[in-house]
Computed example of a mutant assay.
Amino acid sequence: MKKQSILGIMLSCAVLGACYLTKPQIVTAAPASIFTPILRDIKNQIPRGWVMRLPSSVNLSNTKLYPQVITNSPREFAIWLNSRPNCMDRSCQFGVIAVAKDSEYADNLRSKHIFSKTYMQRVKAIRQRNSQTWTESETKLLISSDMVVLERTPITLKPGIQGVFIVQNGGGASTPPSLHVFWKQDGLNYRATIKGGFDYERSVVIQSQKSALINLAVSMAKESPIKSAN
C-alpha cells in the first residue's frame, strides 16, 4: 500500500508538472513605447470620468513620430502624432488620436453627403485649367468640394464595437485630405486621424495608409482603458 501511495504521489507530481510546463502564458499588451514619456501627462490631464485608449503599436509612417498631449479644446482630449518633438504648429501634425464626450465633428462627417468619384474627376479637370477660364458653376463646384466626404465605410473594431472609416477631402493647399476612424466605446467618442491618404491623380484612397489607420484603431479598441489620476 505504501509503495502504491508513493507511486501515486509521484505520478500526480509528474502530471502537475507537465500541466505547469504546458500551461499557456497570458501576455498583456501595453501601449506602444512612443507613448511612455507622456503616460503620466495623459493620466494627469485627461478629464475626470473619461478614459483614453492607446494602441499597442503605431505603424503609420516611416518617419519617427512624437506624441504630444493637446488640451486646447475642452470638448476633446487629443494626442497629436507629430513629425517633430514639442511642436504646436499643425504643419508638423501627422495624425491625431482623441476621445470626446460629444463629437459634432464626427456626427457631421457621419451624415454628410458622399462626393462621388465622378465629381472629383471633374474637379481635377477644372483645376488643371487656367482659373480665368472657370465658369461660375465650375467655381461653385470647386468650393463645394472642399472638406467633403469621399468615402464612408462601416468597420468592426472588435466584437460589439462598430466604427466607421471616412475619407475627407482637403480644403486647399494648406489643408490636405485626411483619413478618419470614428467609434463609440466606454460611453465616449474615439477617433484616429491621419493627414493625406488620398491619391488625387487616380481619385482613390491609398490602401496601405487606410489599412494602417484601421489597424491602429483596432489596437486602440482592444487595449485596456487608461483612467484619469484625478
Rank of each mutant, 00 (worst) to 15 (best):
K112V: 08
S116W: 00
S116Y: 00
Y119E: 06
Y119N: 05
M120C: 00
Q121R: 08
Q121V: 08
R122G: 02
K124H: 11
A125V: 02
A125K: 07
A125L: 06
R127S: 01
R127D: 00
R127Q: 07
Q128L: 11
Q128M: 10
N130A: 04
N130E: 07
S131L: 02
S131A: 06
Q132W: 09
T133M: 07
E136A: 14
S137D: 12
S137N: 12
T139V: 08
K140N: 11
K140Q: 12
S144W: 14
S145Y: 06
M147C: 11
V148G: 01
V149S: 12
P154L: 15
P154N: 15
T156K: 14
T156L: 13
T156R: 13
L157E: 02
K158T: 09
P159R: 04
P159L: 07
G160A: 03
I161V: 15
I161G: 02
G163H: 08
V164H: 09
V164G: 11
F165K: 09
I166L: 12
V167D: 05
V167T: 13
V167P: 02
V167Y: 00
Q168M: 13
N169P: 05
G170T: 04
G172Q: 05
A173E: 05
S174A: 14
S174H: 11
T175R: 10
P176W: 03
P177C: 09
S178T: 13
S178H: 09
S178L: 10
L179D: 05
H180Y: 15
H180D: 12
V181L: 10
V181C: 09
F182D: 01
W183T: 05
W183K: 08
W183V: 07
W183F: 10
K184F: 09
Q185F: 01
L188E: 08
N189A: 09
N189S: 13
R191Q: 12
A192K: 02
T193D: 14
I194F: 05
K195R: 15
K195I: 15
D199I: 07
Y200Q: 12
E201L: 15
R202Q: 13
R202G: 07
V204H: 10
V204E: 14
V205R: 01
I206V: 11
Q207E: 14
S208T: 13
S208D: 12
S208L: 11
Q209W: 00
K210R: 14
S211W: 05
S211Y: 07
S211M: 11
L213D: 02
N215G: 03
L216V: 00
L216P: 00
A217E: 01
A217S: 09
A217I: 00
V218S: 01
V218M: 06
S219M: 00
M220G: 04
K222V: 04
K222M: 12
E223I: 13
E223G: 15
